[in-house]
């Protein structure tokens, strides 16, 4: 009997209801106040400068500007999907999309291979002067894109820049200017992507390599079979960022425009939207921007799905 009571007594004391009661209501209220207080500054600005502009562009993209007579005042009227219809039939837009897709098809894999190669080289046991090389590869990322493009513009100009004088290619001409832009973009971001991959490599447990070495894997096999699969996530991440960047291409062609006649005012989709907006065709520019954002999302998604399949296999 006595045993019973002590048992039930101790049960009571250790049960959840026996804990020192925390006044649930005031602390919940304080927590809620904290959540609102901490989140709202960002939330309000995000709403004002992200959500509202996107919605606004979306709404504007359904309106068309009409004029009464040639010089009458401009009026916005509901146009349904006509801006989108115009965009999908716009030969300049189709050409610019084709151009950035071709660019991305070549430049993004090339840059990522370069970044991956140097990340692996820096991570390999035989590497020397790691810190020094790592820093020099990363430095171009510190140079603002516009400044980088200006300097490369000089380098590509015959009679002025050593690159144009050393290699007999018309860097700013019709055939090559797209790849000149690719050189600038690769120069800017290869080191940045390399550093993302390298940081990931450094985080891998070194014991894995020891095990691989005991199993007789050489440096090449270790890199290919162990290191690359382990840093897959970083490679995918840099891939997504690069795709987004490619579709947004603007600053480099805009800067080179002042020295190259081969870059039209509709060279990339963003340049086209900018040109349309400068000509007061805001509604059309909004539709183009919106299509571009959608295309970016779709391409990033497709890329992620494709790489997921690679992950599963």
């Amino acid at each position: 009997m006595s045993l019973d009571t002590t048992e039930s007594g101790s049960n009571h004391a250790s049960g959840p209801s026996g804990r020192p009661a925390r006044s649930e209501n005031p602390s919940r209220r304080a927590e809620r106040r904290a959540i609102v207080g901490l989140l709202s500054p960002f939330a309000i600005l995000f709403l004002l400068f992200y959500i509202v502009p996107i919605c606004y562009a979306f709404v504007r993209s359904f309106f068309v500007t009409t004029r009464k007579g040639a010089f009458g005042p401009a009026e916005d009227a509901w146009g349904g999907l006509s801006n989108y219809g115009q965009a999908l039939k716009d030969p300049a837009l189709i050409a610019s999309v084709g151009r950035v897709l071709l660019f991305g098809f070549i430049q993004v894999p090339a840059m990522l291979v370069i970044a991956l190669t140097f990340a692996l080289l820096l991570d390999s046991r035989s590497a020397r002067f790691k810190r020094f090389f790592r820093l020099t590869y990363f430095v171009p990322y510190a140079v603002p894109v516009v400044i980088g493009a200006i300097v490369w513009g000089f380098l590509f100009t015959p009679g002025l820049g050593p690159v144009a004088d050393l290699i007999p290619i018309d860097f700013l001409g019709n055939t090559w200017v797209l790849w000149s832009i690719a050189i600038i973009v690769t120069w800017t971001y290869a080191g940045y992507n390399m550093l993302i991959m390298y940081s990931n490599l450094q985080a891998i447990d070194q014991d894995i390599y020891e095990a691989a070495r005991i199993d007789g894997a050489n440096a090449w096999q270790t890199a290919l079979r162990i290191k690359i699969p382990l840093i897959r996530d970083s490679v995918i991440l840099t891939g997504v960022f690069s795709i987004i960047g490619t579709l947004q291409l603007f600053a480099e062609p805009q800067v080179l425009r002042s020295i190259s006649t081969s870059i039209s005012s509709t060279y990339t989709p963003n340049l086209l939207a900018f040109t349309a907006a400068s000509g007061n065709a805001y509604n059309y520019a909004a539709a183009v921007s919106f299509l571009l954002a959608m295309a970016t999302a779709v391409l990033s998604f497709v890329f992620l799905r494709l790489t997921q399949r690679w992950e599963n296999s």
């Binding site: 502009p53 996107i54 562009a57 909004a286």
Partner: peptide, 16 residues
């Protein structure tokens, strides 16, 4: 929001 192209925001921001 990380995925939204900055250039796609800039044009409507200008209008606002």
């Amino acid at each position: 929001g990380v995925l939204v192209p900055a250039t796609a925001l800039a044009l409507p921001l200008f209008l606002i």
